[in-house]
């Protein structure tokens, strides 16, 4: 087993990314090693154990959220990494970008209430296929983390939605918790807050684990989630 300190993690940075540094701090606190920040114009990624696409408003959300970032030079390297079975995590805008690349199915459309939502939500960890992103979290564990998005309403056609559900690719679902407001903040199909790819190696989620890494920040459930992922990837 590799130690967490020896893990090589890259966080991609696009013009308009704004959670890259929060993610860097979160990962460094958990692993003891600072991940590298990789500018979107890089066309290769050094050999890495995990690529993280952070939240933000890459390219100003122009055209569609994540559309322009998904065609940036660094994405070719991300696709190669994925083709080798490499692990990739996308949070919020990172999730939108992963959908635009086609590494994950579906699309995130405008919130059903048409409002930008910035508040805590609670999600249930679902029973999934074998995936480093869920294997260390017990099914049914409730995690409270903030969301901050205008387009988090997961949509895919009915057949694909049924397949995601049947294959165990739904990783996190919005559920009732201590947070104010309805459990499902944005109208997302099947209360989806996060999904994994068919091989379990790519995960996208709307809530921000990197913003919930200590009680001083309102909670540390995000650290629980990230720690579980990192330990699974290191084992």
């Amino acid at each position: 087993m590799m130690s967490l300190t020896s893990m090589r993690i890259a966080i991609l940075v696009f013009p308009g990314s704004n959670c890259d540094r929060d993610m860097m701090v979160a990962i460094e606190r958990l692993t003891g090693r600072r991940p590298s920040l990789v500018w979107h114009k890089e066309s290769s990624l050094d050999s890495i154990d995990l690529a993280i696409i952070p939240g933000g408003f890459s390219f100003g959300d122009y055209l569609r959220c994540g559309a322009l970032a998904a065609r940036a030079p660094v994405i070719d390297a991300v696709l190669d990494h994925a083709a080798r079975g490499g692990a990739i995590m996308g949070v919020c805008n990172g999730f939108q970008i992963l959908l635009e690349t086609g590494l994950l199915p579906g699309v995130l459309v405008k919130n059903a209430g048409l409002k930008y939502i910035c508040r805590n939500v609670t999600v249930d960890v679902c029973d999934t296929i074998d995936s480093p992103f869920t294997q260390n979290l017990e099914t049914g564990t409730r995690l409270t983390m903030p969301v901050a998005h205008n387009e988090g309403n997961y949509f895919v056609d009915e057949d694909k939605l049924a397949r995601l559900n049947d294959n165990g690719q739904i990783a996190f679902r919005y559920t009732d918790g201590s947070a104010h407001g309805p459990a499902n903040p944005n109208g997302s199909s099947l209360n989806i807050a996060g999904i994994v790819s068919a091989n379990g190696r790519v995960m996208g989620m709307m809530p921000h684990p990197e913003r919930a890494i200590s009680p001083e920040l309102g909670g540390s459930d995000g650290a629980t989630l990230l720690q579980g992922c990192l330990e699974a990837l290191a084992s």
Partner: peptide, 9 residues
């Protein structure tokens, strides 16, 4: 097909 539209929706 490449960029301007997202053919999923």
């Amino acid at each position: 097909e490449t960029l301007l539209s997202n053919t999923v929706i």
